[in-house]
């Protein structure tokens, strides 16, 4: 798996091609539409992150090689598009990488407003939740070492 810095730089490069907001949002909307569907069984309250404006479902599982696999969904398409970007960066990384990830691409591509707490679209809590999964899986690994 590529380094999360490289993936983020790749995204920044892609977004630098857009000259105006409209193209950028069209791209995000397309990403939202093409995000693989989350397993309907995962759309349970336990995985629900309730925002005031839009809702996010997030599921995480350990892969056989110790990485973390994320799937997610939202009822709003722009939120979903940004989820697709977050997943592209953090999916199938190690718990350590996820727990310590610095997500600089959000600001660089001008989407910081979507991750401001006042937006209440569930994305801020989603990023927090992804990192918590990283920390939790990390702790699990650490615990098993001592068994």
């Amino acid at each position: 798996m590529a380094d999360i810095k490289d993936i983020q730089n790749e995204i920044i490069d892609e977004f630098s091609l857009f000259s105006e907001w409209m193209e950028k949002y069209e791209y995000i909307i397309d990403l939202g539409k093409s995000l693989p569907m989350i397993d309907p069984k995962a759309k349970v309250d336990n995985n629900l992150i309730k925002g005031c404006q839009s809702q996010v479902w997030l599921q995480a599982e350990r892969t056989e090689n110790g990485k973390v696999h994320f799937t997610a969904d939202s009822d709003a398409i722009i939120t979903k598009g940004i989820i697709a970007l977050l997943i592209r960066v953090l999916d199938r990384q190690t718990p350590e990488t996820i727990a310590h990830a610095e997500l600089f691409f959000i600001e660089a591509i001008g989407l910081r407003e979507h991750l401001s707490p006042t937006r209440s679209n569930g994305l801020v809590s989603m990023v927090k939740q992804m990192k918590l999964y990283g920390i939790a899986f990390q702790a699990q690994t650490g615990w098993k070492k001592h068994l």
């Binding site: 005031c52 404006q53 839009s54 709003a76 939120t79 209440s120």
Partner: peptide
């Protein structure tokens, strides 16, 4: 076929302030 949040975001980009949500 659209979510209020998405429409509100695009309107904001056009300088139009509306409220979305509950």
């Amino acid at each position: 076929g659209t979510h209020p949040y998405d429409v509100g975001m695009i309107l904001d980009k056009l300088g139009i302030a509306v409220r979305t949500g509950h």
